[in-house]
Design a protein around this nucleic acid. Structure first.
Lengths: 243, 243
DNA sequence: CCTGTATCATACTCGCCGGTAGCCATCCTA
DNA sequence: TAGGATGGCTACCGGCGAGTATGATACAGG
């Protein structure tokens, strides 16, 4: 009976995590071949997403057809559809792949033993690198209007998580005296905006690496435009300034 | 002979300039009626562009059809095409309308009698307001990929003009001692990026006006994250800090 | 009243592109 | 070696949307 066979496609796994615990145990199982095929499938799936990110980077989401992506992979369009359900999901996966390193940066910063400003700097450094990565464009430019309500909500919540994380670090830094008093909301917007915008002017084969750009930006944020006394400008670790 | 009649459409005038010197003289010309029609045409044309900007704001460029814009104006699609040649030009005009106030801000700042930081602040204030304006989204999001090479080049040059203007003000401020030493290129990117990003989260009917947002951002840039000595934080006009 | 021009609508063309139907090859498993 | 699962292809559909052909109306000038 020729009913739909395509339903049997295995559910998606998180795009970027490198096969967490599945391949470690049961090395000589009789299903080894099947497991290897599954792993192959993940590799191919990631290649599809990577190709999509690359195409979106260069031509934009709407100017990229799935035929383009298929051609870049030297396969046909239905093959792409074998790995993802639709174009929208491609954008979504690229977004997630881009934002994931930022989330882990927050987790790592949390267990860092330093003042708020240093922790914030650590996060912003990873943030900048993520924006300059191959998924940066997709992460930054994924728009509500191009996504279904459910995915849009998902993305919104992830973005909000990042935003709240920055605000929290700002507040903590202000409490421990390592950050100049400011409005956390506006400051977080300014910081994230400056870093997000990297995706607009940064394309591969640039002279600076993502890390270098992030470092340069952080220096700007840290010092501000107004001139500082020399002693203060050279200071590294912050305590309460005068109080 | 039914050849193309549409060629007779009058050439476009700069979108936003308010009928510069045409209506001042020759008030009783016999072509008064014809001149009035021309003025009407300009008004309608601007309405079309404004409607396009509004639609692009809400749904994005690619998700907006010219039927949408026509419907918003309660006219039909050919009417829209009577005032603009194609969709691309609509985006371009929106971009120009958005960026023009920034250019005038630079011109005004140039004849301002103040140090570099103050002049930069004045420009950034107008910059922020422009980004938060009805054309802000179009100005910020107009992408090369959606435009023909010639228009893309035009937009690129306008953007570059703004960028170079910011860098120049930074250098001037560093020379007169009102701005902390920094890399002008990276700092300009950071400033412009933060302000550009306003277009992503700012939608009308927000609690803050564009001017308020710009002021808040400028305060962030000016102070920086590192804490400042109280005397320094309160300082207003800058001279050389300690040298 | 006649003619040209400005303005706008109805009703189309047409290409692109997201997504699918159906078929074929291969390979693992029993 | 049969038979199912897996992975891939060619060929198509359907709709959306940019842009247009054609003609109707309004009005100005002679």
């Amino acid at each position: 009976m020729p009913t739909s066979r395509r339903k049997s496609a295995p559910a998606r796994a998180p795009v970027k995590s490198g096969s967490p615990a599945v391949t470690t145990a049961l090395q000589r199982s009789p299903w080894r071949a099947s497991r290897e095929r599954l792993r192959d499938r993940q590799i191919k799936r990631e290649a599809v997403i990577r190709a999509a990110a690359h195409a979106f980077n260069h031509k934009g989401y709407h100017n990229t057809s799935l035929d383009d992506i298929a051609a870049a992979l030297e396969v046909s369009k239905p093959t792409v559809y074998y790995y993802v359900t639709n174009k929208e999901q491609l954008l979504f996966e690229c977004f997630v792949a881009g934002i994931e390193p930022i989330r882990t940066a927050f987790r790592k910063a949390r267990k860092l033993k330093a003042n708020g400003r240093e922790r914030l700097k650590a996060v912003l450094g990873h943030y900048g690198q993520a924006v300059a990565s191959e998924f940066g464009w997709c992460m930054v430019r994924a728009e509500d209007q191009d996504l279904s309500p459910s995915m849009s909500a998902h993305i919104k919540s992830l973005k909000s998580e990042i935003d709240q994380g920055i605000r929290r670090l700002l507040r903590e830094g202000m409490q421990d005296g390592s950050i100049h008093p400011c409005d956390p909301k506006m400051t977080a917007f300014a910081l994230a905006g400056a870093l997000n915008w990297i995706a607009h002017w940064y394309r591969e084969n640039q002279s600076m690496t993502g890390a270098e750009i992030a470092a340069a930006f952080i220096a700007v944020f840290e010092n501000g435009l107004s001139p500082r006394a020399l002693a203060e400008a050279g200071r590294r670790s912050g305590g309460a300034p005068t109080a």
